[in-house]
Design a binder for these strands. Structure first.
Length: 742
DNA sequence: GTTCTAGAAC
DNA sequence: GTTCTAGAAC
């Protein structure tokens, strides 16, 4: 009877026989197993015995058998036991687990810390009992981790605690040291990372990430991390004018000086962007300077617009910014049908003002939330809650100078009543000390940001218009000038921008020049989704510009064809590092690739292979990989052709390394297979890939930092992992590579 | 993408 | 004190 109670007793204050615990520590050298035991034992009321294989042999290295014997004997004496040895493999643990019984619960505590941390601790310790010190430590840790098998309850454990960080370790220590003689801990797995998606291939099976718990944490805290002051941001953008709706008097094109609406109410309204003045209201940006910038940016985009139009809207007839802009635009002779000002409520342009604008810009706050009293409040209110929801899916916040374009859900009143398909949120620079991101009157910075804001806004609008043209539904309404011609183009070219079909060399690849823009607008564009694809900063445009205007970059371009441009990476991460850049408009990145691009992918691969042949001819020791970054930093689809020495002063940080040496790098051969079988490539852009520890691309050993890794890879002669040697992913002089074009 | 730099790690 | 990382700014 007593036995029965004992078996089921947990922390019930039952003073009968104590349930013993045997904790099997699992962790590499340097993971902190001994420290863990010591800290628990130092302040635990429960009697513990630490069985350490390093010390049990009295100077000589101990054996597993000795440990087992000691453990059994300690348990017999009624002591709880720590098994302080690596125990990384199931087999290493199994004998100990068998010591469990109705009187002894077997636990595992997994010290799953980053290899680099274990290595550096092992290296540092000289007098450690395990005598594992100096340069050998890294090798030993690496070797052990390669065999790591994380424990599982079905091995016979009652409880498993996973620790991935020092914080986890500390809380496990606290848990065990507070465990009194009669206390018990809940059964089960604790702290286990969600099935690690990143660990996919054989060669990566022991790769582990230490930061997961921290990440989860910070994600959960994302919102409260934002300064609370932000909630009041832009509280009243444009509030003074927005409240008094004067739209009744507003007549279309109230601005004879700049332009008047000609055919705006017809069934074939051209694509139109309505935008408020950014930053001049609550953000107190100088109207004079803002007007200057607006006109300047409008002028810059004039010839990219095709038949599309820009309309600057303000609620008030007496708007200073509107009249300034009007005057400056007139002075510059800006085409008044493509750009004009308009007085009215931006949320009622069609119903109240008779002006159909398919896209409107919002002077947003940085949190992209409704609120304030100005344009932002009006637009969120008119659009209904679906706008907030759709916005949230695109972005959580915005930095000054940037935009985020949101497609309005069909349930939005703004869509149904006003025919607005998209809202582009814009955050301008702030010169109001009472608002976030205050620039302290720094107009150098402010003007730059305001230019960025308008530039991004207009660019986003153009992208939307292009997408709309793509959509079969949109064609008739929006083509305006030459529908049949346009339709023919989009069918014939498979969204591809071929020079030959346009006859005008070079220039026509861009939406540059009025005569080409109508075509450009309905050409191409593989982005079937209407969602604005990622926003590309100005620095991310370089490849795009090179692809579209190779003749302007003759100094860096190695080869040009209709399909691709070849150039050396300006910051090569290896001895040989080429970029094969696609010359297709709208093909920004791997995510934009679809089945129709298969011939292009094969061409890109073939061009890469051709260059590799040449390089290997010059230096037979070179080994190459061809592949794409899952989430590139530079706009315009580009294939990396990179030698596997990674011998380059430009390789400076973890991201550089991991972008070529984790799953983030998608081998061209795999991409081609995936696109041909599934119509799209698998993208692995989990940001945790970028923070993975440094591992050699040959022997997979881990290294605590980049300089150490570099030293290692300069010497490592191990063969490449089989996953790379297989399937033609690696290309070397012995040549068993794949090519896709005959 | 790089550069710059604060501060963490050594 | 020096090295290294990582985040912000560009």
């Amino acid at each position: 009877m007593d036995m029965d109670i004992d078996e089921n007793s947990t922390a019930k204050g039952n003073e009968r026989r104590t349930k013993l615990i045997m904790v099997i520590l699992v962790g590499a050298p340097g993971s902190g197993k001994s420290t863990f035991c010591e800290l628990v034992m130092a302040s635990s009321s429960r009697p513990w015995v630490r069985i350490c294989q390093d010390t049990i042999g009295n100077g000589k290295s101990g054996t597993k058998a000795q440990c087992l014997k000691s453990a059994a004997s300690a348990l017999n004496d009624g002591k709880s036991v720590f098994v302080d040895r690596c125990n990384l493999e199931i087999e290493q643990r199994s004998e100990f687990v068998k010591l469990g019984s109705s009187l002894v619960d077997v636990h595992a505590v997994v010290l799953d810390l980053p290899a680099q941390l274990c290595i550096s601790r092992s290296v540092k310790r000289t007098g450690h009992e395990g005598n594992l010190s100096g340069g050998k430590a890294a090798a030993v840790v690496n070797k052990m981790l390669q065999k790591k098998e994380l424990p599982n309850l079905n091995e016979g454990f009652k409880r498993i605690t996973f620790c991935h960080s020092e914080t986890d370790v500390q809380s496990a220590i606290d848990t065990y040291k507070s465990l009194g003689l009669h206390d018990a801990l809940p059964d089960g797995c604790f702290g286990q990372k969600n099935a690690d998606k990143k660990v996919q291939l054989g060669i990566m099976r022991f790769l582990k990430k230490a930061e997961n718990p921290a990440k989860t944490c910070s994600n959960a805290n994302t919102n409260k991390d934002f300064p609370s002051s932000q909630t009041t941001q832009e509280k009243k953008e444009s509030s003074c004018t927005m409240l008094s709706n004067v739209n009744k008097e507003s007549e279309k094109g109230e601005n004879p000086g700049v332009g008047s609406l000609e055919n705006n109410i017809s069934g074939s309204d051209p694509p139109t962007l309505a935008f408020p003045s950014i930053s001049t209201s609550d953000f107190k940006f100088s109207h004079e300077k803002a007007a200057e910038i607006i006109v300047e940016m409008v002028e810059e985009f004039m010839d990219k617009l095709g038949n599309a139009r820009l309309v600057m809207v303000d609620l008030s007839h007496g708007s200073k910014i509107l009249s300034l802009v009007k005057a400056k635009a007139a002075k510059k002779n800006i085409c008044s049908t493509k750009f004009f000002t308009f007085v009215g409520d931006i949320t009622k342009l069609k119903s109240d003002g008779g002006l159909h604008c398919n896209v409107i810009a919002n002077a947003a706050n940085w949190r992209l939330k409704p609120g304030g009293g100005g344009v932002n409040a009006a637009i969120f209110s008119a659009a209904g809650p679906s706008l907030e929801e759709a916005t949230k899916q695109q972005a959580k916040s915005l930095r000054p100078g940037n935009v985020v374009a949101v497609q309005l859900p069909s349930t939005s009143p703004l869509f149904n009543r006003e025919g607005v398909t998209h809202v582009i949120h814009v955050l301008g620079p702030n010169m109001n000390p009472q608002r976030p991101n205050y620039l302290n009157n720094d107009y150098d910075e402010g003007c730059k940001l305001l230019r960025d804001a308008y530039s991004s806004l207009f660019q986003a609008f153009i992208s939307i218009v292009k997408d709309e043209f793509k959509s079969a539904k949109g064609i008739d309404e929006r083509l305006g000038s030459a529908p049949s011609e346009s339709r023919k183009h989009s069918e014939d070219t498979h969204h591809k921008f071929k020079r030959a079909e346009l006859q005008i060399p070079e220039r026509s690849k861009k939406w540059k020049g009025t005569q080409e823009s109508a075509e450009a607008l309905n050409q191409n564009n593989n982005k079937i989704s209407h969602k604005m694809s990622k926003h590309w900063g100005s620095w991310a445009q370089a490849l795009y510009n090179t692809a579209m205007y190779p003749e302007r970059h003759a100094n860096i371009v190695l080869e040009t064809s209709d399909d691709v441009v070849v150039l050396n990476d300006i910051y090569p991460k290896a001895r040989k590092h080429l970029l094969i850049v696609a010359r297709y408009e709208g093909l920004d990145q791997l995510a934009d690739v679809h089945k129709e691009h298969l011939p292009l992918l094969k061409t890109m691969h073939a061009v890469g292979m051709k260059w590799i042949d040449k390089f290997i001819h010059d230096d037979a020791s070179l080994v190459f990989r061809l592949g794409y970054h899952s989430a590139p930093s530079m706009r315009q689809l580009h294939l990396h052709v990179i030698s596997q020495d990674f011998d380059s002063s430009h390789l400076k940080n973890k991201k550089h390394w991991n972008s070529f040496n984790t799953d983030f790098f998608r081998d061209s051969v795999d991409v081609i297979d995936e696109v041909s079988s599934h119509g799209k490539a698998i993208i692995k852009d989990d940001e945790s890939l970028m923070s993975m520890e440094f591992r050699c691309n040959r022997c997979r050993s881990a290294h605590p930092n980049l300089p150490k890794l570099k030293t290692h890879i300069s010497k490592c002669q191990s063969p490449f992992p089989s996953t790379l040697l297989e399937g033609g992913r690696l290309v070397n002089a012995s040549g068993n590579s794949r090519n896709f074009l005959s």
